[in-house]
Amino acid sequence: MTEQRTGVATFKGSPITLLGPQLQPGDKAPDFTLNKNLLEEVSLKDFAGKIKLISVAPSLDTGVCDAQTRRFNTEAAELGDQVAVLTVSVDLPFAQARWCGAAGIDRVLTLSDYKQRSFGQSYGVLIQELQLDMRSIFVLDQNDKIVYVEYLKEMSEHPDYDSAIQAVKHLL
Score class of each variant (00 low, 15 high):
Met155Thr: 07
Asp81Arg: 12
Gln116Met: 00
Ser55Met: 03
Ser156Asp: 04
Tyr151Glu: 04
Leu111Pro: 01
Val88Glu: 07
Ala67Leu: 13
Ile105Arg: 07
Cys100Lys: 14
Arg71Thr: 15
Tyr151Ile: 03
Ala95Pro: 01
Gly120Met: 03
Asp162Val: 12
Val64Pro: 12
Gln121Thr: 14
Pro58Phe: 12
Ala95Gly: 03
Glu40Ile: 10
Ala103His: 07
Tyr161Gln: 03
Asp160Lys: 09
Lys153Trp: 01
Cys65Trp: 01
Asp162Cys: 04
Gly49Met: 12
Leu86Thr: 00
Tyr148Trp: 04
Leu79Lys: 07
Gly101Thr: 13
Gln116Phe: 02
Glu129Ala: 10
Ala57Arg: 02
Asp113Lys: 13
Lys52His: 07
Val83Ser: 01
Asp141Glu: 05
Met155Phe: 03
Arg71Ala: 14
Tyr151Met: 05
Ile105Ala: 07
Ala102Lys: 15
Leu53Glu: 11
Ile146Phe: 10
Asp141Cys: 08
Arg117Lys: 15
Tyr114Val: 10
Ala97His: 13
Glu157Cys: 07
Pro159Asn: 08
Glu78Gly: 10
Ala57Thr: 12
Leu60Trp: 05
Val149Ile: 10
Val108Met: 13
Ser55Trp: 05
Gly49Thr: 04
Gly124Asp: 09
Leu53Asp: 12
Leu53Val: 02
Ser163Lys: 15
Arg71Met: 13
Asp46Asn: 13
Val147Thr: 11
Thr87Val: 00
Gln121Tyr: 06
Met134Lys: 09
Gln128Trp: 02
Arg107Leu: 08
Val149Tyr: 10
Tyr148His: 14
Phe72Ile: 06
Met155Tyr: 03
Ile165Pro: 07
Tyr161Leu: 04
Val64Met: 13
Gln96Asn: 11
Ile54Met: 15
Leu92Gly: 06
Asn73Trp: 06
Leu126Thr: 05
Gly80His: 10
Gln96Arg: 05
Ile105Lys: 11
Ile54Phe: 14
Ser156Phe: 01
Ile51Asn: 11
Ser163Thr: 06
Leu86Gln: 00
Leu130Val: 04
Val125Ser: 04
Tyr123Ala: 08
Met134Phe: 12
Ile54His: 14
Arg117Pro: 05
Asp160Glu: 12
Ile105Met: 09
Lys153Gly: 01
Gln96Thr: 02
